[in-house]
């Protein structure tokens, strides 16, 4: 019941959000909200389900394309980037937070924290400038600065960006949690029993940090989704989000369908990462 309700809520939100560019306009210096327009577009969308035009979209002036045929490659590209970076993020952050939690050096926290406050677009622009700088001074091309054609997407730099930002966020939260777990009594008693450090980490620390990771997962994926927009835009990667900004013309059906696919993408990533955590639980907690 609750899931249906929330899905309905999100659907209504998407329908409303996509009408905003039409319904809120400025005429003669005044902000005007036109509710008629909202109704018109939502009705139009529902009507287009019946006659099958729901998946039609236009490119340029003449071409009408079918979104059902064109969407999957875009979707898969985004899915690929997100899955890969999600997996790396979780594994890296578990490893690093175990190490950094015990570090008492404030400057380490300073640097990690400052990297965490740097927005995605600044990181991307610096990566691009850096690659160009190295190329111009040494002639060595490390990675592609941006995709030029539809067939070959820039891979390394987008992946670095998509991984680095959520990893830093997770390291910051998880290292605090690891610190708390390390101060618990059962760690002391395990140490008193003479268990090896590695054994304590594998069987007690990781197991007790994983629930926090699970609780933070929504936030992590939300950060990644937000990064995805900027990454695909600046690196010119042909992913799902480019459908929203690609054309010169704003098409209601296209935007609504893309937003729905984004929600689907979100859910898919969420369950994939949950699966990864489940496997980690099996390995570390029960193995």
């Amino acid at each position: 019941m609750r899931t249906t309700l929330s899905i309905a809520g999100v659907a209504a939100f998407i329908f409303l959000l996509a009408t905003i560019p039409f319904s809120i306009t400025i005429t003669e210096g005044n902000l005007v909200i036109d509710f008629q327009v909202i109704l018109f577009y939502v009705k139009d969308y529902v009507a287009s389900i019946g006659n099958g035009e729901i998946f039609h979209y236009q490119v340029g002036k003449s071409g009408t394309y079918n979104l059902l045929a064109d969407l999957p490659p875009y979707f898969l590209t985004s899915l690929q980037y997100l899955t890969l970076s999600g997996f790396i993020t979780i594994c890296m952050s578990m490893l690093v937070s175990a190490w950094s939690s015990k570090s008492k050096r404030e400057w380490v926290k300073d640097i990690i924290g400052f990297l965490g406050t740097l927005p995605d677009f600044i990181l991307i622009l610096f990566l691009q400038l850096g690659v160009v700088f190295i190329y111009q001074s040494t002639g060595f091309k490390i990675a592609k600065v941006a995709s030029r054609s539809a067939d070959e997407n820039a891979f390394l730099l987008p992946l670095i960006t998509l991984t680095l930002i959520p990893t830093i966020y997770l390291i910051r939260t998880l290292s605090e949690r690891t610190y708390d777990v390390l101060a618990e009594d059962y760690i002391l008693s395990a140490k008193a029993k003479g268990l090896k450090k590695r054994h304590i980490y594998m069987h007690h620390v990781i197991r007790n940090v994983l629930p926090y990771l699970k609780a933070d997962l929504h936030k992590v994926i939300a950060i990644m989704m937000s990064n995805l927009f900027i990454v695909e835009y600046l690196f010119n990667v042909r992913g799902l989000t480019t459908l929203l900004f690609g054309g010169t013309m704003y098409q209601y059906n296209l935007v609504v369908n893309t937003l729905f696919s984004l929600v689907l993408l979100y859910l898919l990533i969420y369950w994939l990462l949950r699966l990864l955590i489940l496997i980690m639980e099996r390995v570390f907690a029960h193995g």
């Binding site: 309700l5 929330s6 899905i7 809520g9 999100v10 939100f13 998407i14 959000l17 996509a18 905003i20 560019p21 039409f22 809120i24 306009t25 400025i26 902000l31 929504h218 936030k219 994926i221 939300a222 989704m225 937000s226 927009f229 929203l244 704003y250 937003l259 984004l262 929600v263 993408l265 979100y266 859910l267």
Partner: peptide, 21 residues
């Protein structure tokens, strides 16, 4: 609901609100 809305980042909402203005 909040979890699902994470798929639509805040700046996108502001983007839609501002793009026509």
């Amino acid at each position: 609901i909040f979890g699902l809305l994470g798929s639509i980042p805040a700046f996108l909402i502001v983007y839609f609100l501002l793009v026509g203005i």
